[in-house]
Design a protein around this nucleic acid. Structure first.
Lengths: 209, 209
DNA sequence: CAGCAAGGTTACCGGCGCGTAGGATGATGG
DNA sequence: CCATCATCCTACGCGCCGGTAACCTTGCTG
């Protein structure tokens, strides 16, 4: 739905980089819609209005093609969360912004979030590593803020970070699957409130021992 | 690790139901370790010390075999959470018990939780439906308790339920992947506290309007 | 206008893995 | 001791799909 309509003029010749981008677009559509295993290289090529060998002139194999997309969107998630945390110094607002980051990520760009959150290839080490690294970075950034604001230990803060990431991810995916039922902002607010009250329940550095 | 050691006496004849159970055990080991796609029916049969046609005398196909296991463990999760919620009427304790339920589920029975939380077959409608139904039931049970205790609307309460389920699931999976770093009880307590303070931030029926 | 490089095509190969046909083998009852 | 049934095995068919070999075409260049 995102990149290119459908009827592709099977005759156009493209410079290398333009073709590469277009192939990535077609691949994303197919991988998102079908998952890695059900996606056929033939279909991706056809979707791009091109024959299969062209695909292999740009990517050494199916896995590498997939990894290129995964890297792109995993990085996008991390960046979005990073920006959210940097957008203010008020921690309550930070929580709000972070939750919105996850909801934005899930709502954006042709459901590409599926590559990161619903990959059917997590049994492959290279994929698993990337997904976990993205989660890890998000959790760590959040944990850092928590540590600045509470007396939580490093381990505790990180665990809380992971918990919040999970909460955001799962609730955002649910919200998307029910798009009509709840307005985006409402859902973000409810979850942000849950998160904020949850965190602020932990003792703060200024509290008496 | 769960069902049968390894060296299986390739000659033993078994009555039908015993064989079926054993096949399910072998299948679980392989599906859990490799995921659906990488798991070969040949390997499952071999693991059970039996030849492939035997497998097909008990299950019509690979998918049905997988679904049988998935049903079993999805149901187990729901039951565990249900029991946790029924184990007390004190809501703070309920939160604690629910979180423990997820950690228990993840820690139990040969990592079978992977079938429910990390299936690489969610693109298949039958699998997706089962996973979502388990999540839905958990979230709904939790939402019900929340509704009894706060003024949250039905939608809000369910969204909170989903968020808490996500928090529990993701944090429990993380905890398991780091088994040594944090004692189980500590992790449960940290997450339970996060959840409890989060929920109790919502207005209660006894609060002034 | 020859020729060459860049971009694209058709047609094929080979392996893997699900599922099955057909036969052997051990227990059970007459 | 023979028949019969359930259980299990060896061996194979066959479709799907990732990947490749060999050839074509377009347009720029000297």
């Amino acid at each position: 739905m995102t990149a290119t309509p459908d009827a592709r003029p099977r005759g156009t010749r493209l410079p290398r980089m333009a073709r590469r981008r277009q192939l990535l677009g077609a691949a994303q559509e197919v991988f998102v819609a079908q998952g890695y295993h059900a996606a056929a290289m033939d279909e991706i090529a056809e979707r791009a209005g091109v024959s299969k060998p062209v695909l292999y002139q740009h990517f050494p194999g199916k896995l590498e093609l997939y990894l290129a997309l995964l890297d792109e969107h995993a990085e996008a998630l991390v960046t979005t969360v990073r920006d959210a945390l940097a957008s203010t110094t008020d921690n309550k607002m930070r929580v709000q912004a972070s939750m919105q980051a996850f909801y934005d990520f899930v709502a954006g760009d042709g459901e590409a979030y599926r590559l990161v959150f619903e990959s059917d290839l997590r049994n492959v080490a290279q994929v698993r590593a990337r997904v976990e690294r993205a989660n890890h970075k998000c959790a760590e950034m959040i944990a850092k803020v928590i540590q600045e604001d509470t007396r939580a230990s490093v381990d505790e803060a990180y665990l809380l970070g992971i918990g919040l990431v999970g909460m955001a991810e799962v609730s955002a995916r649910y919200w998307l699957s029910q798009q009509k039922a709840i307005p985006k902002e409402t859902a973000e607010n409810v979850i942000a409130r849950l998160a904020w009250r949850g965190i602020s329940g932990f003792p703060r550095p200024t509290d008496p021992a």
